[in-house]
Design a protein around this nucleic acid. Structure first.
Length: 581
RNA sequence: UACCCGAUGGUGUAAUCGGUAGCACGACAGGUUUUGGUCCUGUUGGUCCAGGUUCGAGUCCUGGUCGGGUAGCCA
């Protein structure tokens, strides 16, 4: 309603349908009905998010309905675990389906009766060819296939056989029900496709009630029909299946008193991202080979992984909206997804200070034992987020990268003799440092502070009117108050835009530094107990911006004794970029 | 060598009936800034090719080129 966005090609079709009254009274958009129909055979990933977003946002746009339906037609591959996980992930993304969860398996009886109608009409037959024979007789693109010897058996015989298939009289794979279409059809899907196969496997939803299971092409249009889906949205690889989708519904309706609902299938391009692998096979390989720690590893682009990494549902939805829907197979730069989460988190994430690689600093003219509580802004983008108190004392930690003995040009951080601002605290000047005699590594920096700069304010101008300036502002943590934490710094899992494209093996493109674990020092507000002014997150996960570093969330591995933070994404860093040039 | 689909700056996506090719991201250059973040301003750069129809074509027609999909008793 609110958005002025121009309608995508699917919405344009729907607009026309509504104007013409194709699905109900002309002008009534509330008849629009979509569905998200996952097979419960794996965890949802960012690619599914696009489909979820599309179906649910269309229903919302038109005031229609969107169902969640498990397309559970193949018990050999499906599992209860996924039925639970998928619902959880859809909810996490922020969507509520209309009514109960639907299951294709609950429509099997109806489908079975319709199959018998087709047999009776001579549009389907029981075939006794083996899988291998069917494959060989299908022909190839360019040359026609051969007809099954069972193709023209009497309808009564097929009917009898089909009933006995269901009754469990025949072994797995021994017979199939096939549609009688055209073995010379240029579209391979139309060469007498299999409608039912015999499979004896316990089904995750309906148990052992069935031993014949419908194939996708036969089942899917019927599922849509049963639920009176108006627009059945799917990905481009089903384009060649649409003629069959339509053929089945038309064949059923031919000569039938009571017509069944005929949804319109519309195909769109699935989400393709650089630096990411989403296929079930590759995801599984990464888990099984220990490349990642599991399906919810923060480097994985399963929705579970992204949730643990700190991605927000809001940012994923905004990303889908941003990249849009077309029939063009585009490859989206992963940076777009990172931008989306930065944009959301920049607006709402509370700012905190945390030192990832600590370097000790002593303020030599600051009294020992003195502690001042400094006022720090929680979010400069949101004045309503308020302020907090941060303790300051004589001994601090600053970032190792923020001090250099012999810095390059344009380095505005701390150096011997140099002055910088400590954010919300004081201006300090470096008076010396100590290095490890063995390694040369700096282990301590000595500074003095200017009491006139409390809060980080510039000191009053000198009598001659000149004003002192500092170029750099550093974050810091008071050493005696610091909270020790484990911080996991994640980076892309793959270095190549298209992992595996160069050599054929994605393992060759793995980023060896996709996870770095550091012992960090955090300000007290980052303790195990949420501060009272932290925002309420839709999923209850605590998220922060560590100033000058990036966005982080609290990992479930955290305990009251030890905080564990995950870096969702770093801040943009024009200094890093400048250094590389 | 079959069938289906697609093609607009670096990337993604708009352009009503055929009528000024726009927006976002990136890159680059400035400005603001107590985060080298954010924000603001500016610059850069595009209709796959060849014909045709038309006063006028990204849009319509014809032919090509390039890219994707399709030969599971998977979905």
């Amino acid at each position: 309603m609110a958005e002025e966005r121009t309608p995508n090609f699917i919405e344009q079709i729907i607009d026309r349908d509504i104007a013409e009254g194709r699905w109900g009274p002309a002008g009534d958009s509330s008849v629009i009905r979509t569905r998200f129909p996952p097979e419960p055979n794996g965890y949802l990933h960012i690619g599914h998010a696009k489909s979820i977003w599309l179906n649910f946002s269309i229903a919302r746009r038109y005031g229609g309905r969107c169902f969640l339906r498990f397309d559970d037609t193949n018990p050999a591959k499906e599992d209860r675990e996924y039925i639970e996980a998928i619902q959880e992930d859809v909810r996490w993304l922020g969507y509520a389906w209309d009514g109960p969860v639907r299951y294709a398996s609950e429509y099997f009886e109806w489908m079975y009766e319709l199959a018998k109608e087709l047999i009776a009409k001579g549009r389907a037959y029981v075939c006794e060819l083996s899988a291998e024979e069917v494959r060989q007789m299908r022909g190839t693109p360019g040359e026609p296939g051969k007809e099954s010897p069972w193709r023209n058996r009497p309808a009564e015989e097929s009917l009898d056989l089909f009933e006995r298939m269901r009754a469990g009289e025949f072994p797995d794979g021994s017979k199939t029900l096939r549609a009688k279409i055209d073995m010379a059809h240029p579209n391979l899907n139309m060469r007498d496709p299999v409608m039912y196969r015999i499979v004896r496997k316990p089904h995750p939803h309906v148990g052992d009630r069935w031993c014949v299971y419908p194939m996708y092409d036969w089942a899917h249009g019927l599922e849509d029909s049963y639920e009176r889906i108006t627009h059945s949205l799917c990905t481009l690889e089903f384009e060649n299946h649409r003629p069959l989708y339509d053929w089945f519904i038309d064949a059923i309706n031919e000569g039938r008193e009571e017509k069944i609902h005929h949804s319109q299938q519309i195909e769109f391009a699935k989400l393709l991202l650089t630096h990411v692998l989403l296929s079930k096979r590759n995801l599984l390989a990464m888990v099984q080979e220990g490349i990642v720690r599991g399906w919810d590893d923060p480097r994985m682009h399963t929705l579970r992984g992204m949730r643990r990494r700190g991605w927000t549902p809001e940012s994923i939805r905004a990303f889908c909206e941003e990249v849009g829907v077309t029939k063009y197979n585009s490859l989206i730069d992963f940076g777009r997804l990172e931008n989306a989460v930065r944009e959301h988190l920049n607006a709402v994430a509370p700012r905190r200070m945390g030192v990832l690689r600590p370097l000790r600093v002593v303020i030599e003219n600051y009294p020992e034992g003195k502690v001042e509580m400094m006022d720090a802004v929680n979010n400069p983008e949101d004045p309503g987020a308020g302020t907090r108190k941060v303790p300051f004392s004589r001994e601090l930690f600053i970032e190792r990268d923020d001090f250099m003995v012999d810095p390059p040009k344009k380095f505005f951080r701390l150096r011997p003799g140099g002055e910088v601002r400590l954010r919300y605290a004081y201006w300090i000047t470096c008076t010396g440092f100590e290095a490890d005699p063995q390694t040369g590594e700096v282990v301590l920096v000595r500074c003095t502070y200017d009491p006139q700069t409390r809060g980080g304010e510039a000191p009053p101008p000198a009598p001659d009117g000149t004003r002192r300036k500092v170029k750099g502002t550093l974050h810091w943590v008071s050493a005696p108050h610091a909270i020790k934490a484990e911080v996991r710094l994640f980076d892309r899992l793959f270095r190549a835009e298209q992992p595996g494209k160069a050599t054929g093996d994605f393992r060759d493109d793995l980023n060896p530094d996709s996870m770095e674990v550091v012992r960090a020092m955090l300000e007290p507000a980052l303790g195990p107990e949420p501060a009272s002014d932290e925002p309420a997150w839709s999923d209850g996960i605590r998220r922060f911006q560590l100033e000058r570093h990036g966005y982080f969330c609290v990992d479930p591995d955290s305990t009251p004794e030890r905080m564990v933070l995950n870096r969702t994404v770093s801040l943009k860093d024009s200094w890093q970029k400048a250094k590389k040039q």
